[in-house]
Amino acid sequence: MLHYANPQHFLSLARRLTPWLLGAALLLLAVGVYLALFVAPPDYQQGEASRIMYVHVPAAWMSMFVYGCMAAASVAAFVFKHPLGDVAAKAAAPAGAVFTALALVTGMLWGKPMWGAWWVWDARLTSVLILFFLYIAYIALWDAIEEPARAARMARILCLVGAVNIPIIHFSVDWWNTLHQGSTVFRMDGPKMPVSMLTPLLIMAIAYTVLFAGLLLVRMRTEILARRLRTLRLNLEGAPA
């Protein structure tokens, strides 16, 4: 593992892994969307509107998973001074923001026909909206602070403070009376969903996860190159004319 803490070794590994991850993601997405639209049965209560689940739930899971990854990377950067910790967290944030936005928008498109409202200020929806703002604040913080080491430190703190929101999101449907339904997959007594719906849902979730992994590597490579460019420029400026 330590071998890949070296950005140079990491770059060559990432370069080799990226096409496999992105290829696998596309394949899984194709299978997942096919199962979701053509094979999965309509829900006995919600009818065909339940097909929104296959794009809504994976996006919502990813919105939390990506934040968890960023928090873990921030801890690695803080505690172990891992050189790729900040790079990983910074590279992941825009992907997390996109997944969160998708969870919110597909949720609205599901809420309107089922609840009769695009939006309600209930605990689940509000805490996910806060998560979206956390992503935006995190991205803005990196852009706002000029000095890289200080920006990294502030970003880690923001990320870790914001991490308290993640369990709040997960348990919001139990702690408060919400319009949003409770967990049907991550339950102590196992998933409460027929296999015909659970299979496409899990394939879509794995597809989103693998896609995120591929994009994360692409974005981390971009960030490592950006850092190299910055040092090259600094060297050029410092060099005698």
Binding site: E48, R51, A95, L215, V218
Partner: peptide, 28 residues
């Protein structure tokens, strides 16, 4: 027709596709 839910189901899939493709293209 998606059982009358077409105006909700298709935008959900469309927006997901556009956002993820957009993220992929800009990252690349």
């Amino acid at each position: 027709a998606m059982g009358g839910y077409a105006i909700y189901v298709w935008p959900a899939y469309g927006i997901s596709a556009i956002a993820l493709i957009g993220l992929g293209v800009t990252s690349w």
